[in-house]
């Protein structure tokens, strides 16, 4: 689309975006090929070998049960990233559907839906998820479900805003008057615009969801030990922080780097498409 390409200039300003994309792609590759990259069995205990500092044998040392931290991080990457992606995609789909529906229908239904969104927004995310887990079994699926239940609202808001604009905009009628079909306008202008806004939101969301998942598994939710979720690993390492800090620090850095690379994409995208960043020409 001509409009879209005019917005996107690859130059020094996009360093962040390109860096983020590269790093994220690298992390994704590592995650996918993690079984091949693991040096030890992530769940196999090896007590004589416990609490060893990082070495050429164990890149990130071993934990209290003698398990190789490096391999556990790799194993955990699949859980962490997989969860984050699933959450983002599902909450995006759910939220967008509800938002579009609400915006298009308008009237009473719209008002009720938006009130419901307000109610969900009143809960801080972690508090909501904690409350939900009381009646859900403690496994990764519950965690995914709980986060989706609160995360859909941010997509609903955007989608509903777009739907309202589509409903109200005057030049649809004008364009119809000069011959363009209503569906044509819908597909050529509005849907791409809405889709791009949702996609940007998703890219910005992945980073925070990764952090939320790690925080929640740190608190003991989601998949249980011995399954190596990064947050759980960090929690397990707390007791050994004095003499074996690598048990917590290594997975912590994994979380930080992953979140960082996706945040770079989100930030970079937002900057690249932000009209404020472009130079303005004034000819009057």
């Amino acid at each position: 689309m001509k409009k879209r390409s005019a917005l996107f200039h690859i130059n020094r300003k996009n360093v962040l975006l390109i860096l983020g994309l590269t790093l994220s792609a690298l992390i994704l590759l590592i995650t996918i090929f993690s079984p091949l990259l693991e040096t030890h069995n992530p769940t196999k205990m090896n007590l004589p070998n416990k609490l060893k500092a990082p070495s050429s044998e164990n890149y990130f040392g071993t934990d209290a049960l003698g398990r190789d931290v490096y391999s556990r991080i790799l194993e955990g990457s699949r859980v962490s990233l997989g969860t984050a992606f699933v959450v983002v995609i599902f909450s995006a789909i759910l939220g967008t559907a509800i938002g579009l529906f609400s915006g298009f229908i308008g009237g009473r239904t719209d008002m009720v839906c938006m009130r419901i969104v307000d109610i969900f927004l009143a809960f801080p995310t972690i508090v909501f998820v904690l409350a939900m887990t009381t009646f859900l079994p403690t496994n990764q699926l519950s965690l995914i479900l709980a986060i989706c239940c609160i995360n859909w609202v941010r997509y609903a808001r955007i989608a509903r805003g777009e739907a309202v604009i589509i409903r109200n905009v005057e030049y649809i009628e004008a364009a119809t008057a000069i011959g363009n079909s209503k569906t044509g306008i819908l597909f050529r202008y509005f849907l791409p615009n809405t889709v791009s806004k949702i996609l940007i939101m998703m890219s910005m969301d992945i980073g925070s969801i990764i952090l939320y998942c790690a925080s929640l598994s740190f608190l003991g939710l989601g998949t249980q030990p011995p399954s190596p979720a990064w947050g759980t690993m960090i929690n397990e390492g707390r007791d050994y922080i004095r003499n074996a800090p690598w048990i917590s620090i290594a997975p912590g850095i994994a979380v930080a780097v992953t979140a960082l690379s996706f945040n770079m994409i989100g930030d970079g995208l937002r900057d690249a498409l932000d009209p404020r960043m472009r130079e303005s020409i004034q000819t009057e």
């Binding site: 952090l211 740190f218 960090i234 929690n235 620090i249 912590g252 850095i253 979380v255 930080a256 979140a259």
Partner: peptide, 17 residues
């Protein structure tokens, strides 16, 4: 951007250390 990507529990633990 870097600081915002570090999860609270990590920075907390690092600060403790």
């Amino acid at each position: 951007l870097f600081i915002g990507s570090v999860p609270g529990f990590l920075s907390g633990l690092v600060l403790i250390i």
